[in-house]
């Protein structure tokens, strides 16, 4: 049976993990390579790297980091942040990323999604969607790290990028992100029930129950979390054990 995936996300700024796991046994907690090794050994099913570097001058630093991390990471690695042109995808894949996540550039230029999928295969292209609730059953797509409203309906947008070749959707609820109050289950349900591609739930995890809710009620194929892992509240194996007890298939 296909397992539900637990994916820790690392925020990387200027080549350093800025929101990383706080384990004292790490020689250098800001080193993405150390973090990747640790998460791999702990049983993470994939790793997500989010480049939050504002300046494009530091792009090479990201590539070097992706390369060093990939060399030490024998689980799939998704990299996102500032992916704007085909060349960005090529460079990241060449450096060792397995999947590339596109956010703003997919909203501003839909053709980019189909070009990317055609060139590198649908399963390589993850579309990251930042969703903000507008009414009870509608959500709006935001771009530029959640700063810019677009007026685009999230459900329509997800269906559109799926038809253009997105292989996976990384769906973040902006309302829930950082609140630790659980996923926006209604949002998840609306998207997972309408799409054929897998959806990664993101934004809002604070308890073990939330992981299970995202999967069982929300229909997510994977759950992404940052702070609960980084600050050592849960270890990957705690989450998996909890989910396994709830009869959710996980890799242990």
């Amino acid at each position: 049976m296909l397992k539900k995936r637990i994916i820790p996300c690392l925020d990387v700024n200027n080549g350093r993990v800025v929101k990383g796991v706080n384990f004292i046994d790490l020689v250098d907690a800001g080193d993405p390579v150390e973090q990747a090794k640790l998460y791999g050994a702990e049983g993470a099913d994939e790793l997500c790297f989010l480049d939050i570097t504002a300046s494009s001058d530091n792009r090479q630093m990201l590539l070097d980091n992706v390369q060093k991390t990939a060399e030490n990471c024998f689980i799939p690695l998704t990299v996102g942040g500032g992916v704007r042109v085909i060349g960005d995808i090529k460079n990241l894949l060449h450096a060792g990323a397995d999947k590339v996540s596109i956010n703003t550039a997919a909203v501003t230029n839909r053709k980019f999604v189909s070009e990317a999928a055609e060139k590198y295969g649908t399963s390589t292209i993850v579309i990251a969607v930042d969703a903000k609730k507008t009414t009870d059953n509608t959500w709006e797509v935001f771009t530029h790290g959640g700063r810019n409203a677009t007026g685009i309906n999230v459900i329509d947008y997800c269906q559109e990028v799926e038809s253009l070749g997105a292989g996976e959707i990384l769906l973040t609820s902006m309302d829930k992100d950082g609140t630790k109050s659980g996923f926006d289950i209604n949002l998840l349900k609306n998207i997972t029930s309408k799409l054929n591609v897998p959806v990664i739930a993101s934004g809002g995890v604070g308890t073990l129950e939330h992981f299970a809710e995202g999967i069982i009620e929300g229909g997510a194929s994977s759950v992404l979390a940052a702070s609960v892992f980084h600050f050592g509240e849960f270890k990957i194996k705690d989450v998996k054990r909890y989910l396994a007890d709830k009869n959710i298939p996980v890799r242990i």
Partner: peptide, 10 residues
């Protein structure tokens, strides 16, 4: 079932 078949399987 979602397509792609993506993830860890037995």
């Amino acid at each position: 079932y979602k397509i792609p078949h993506m993830g860890w399987n037995e």
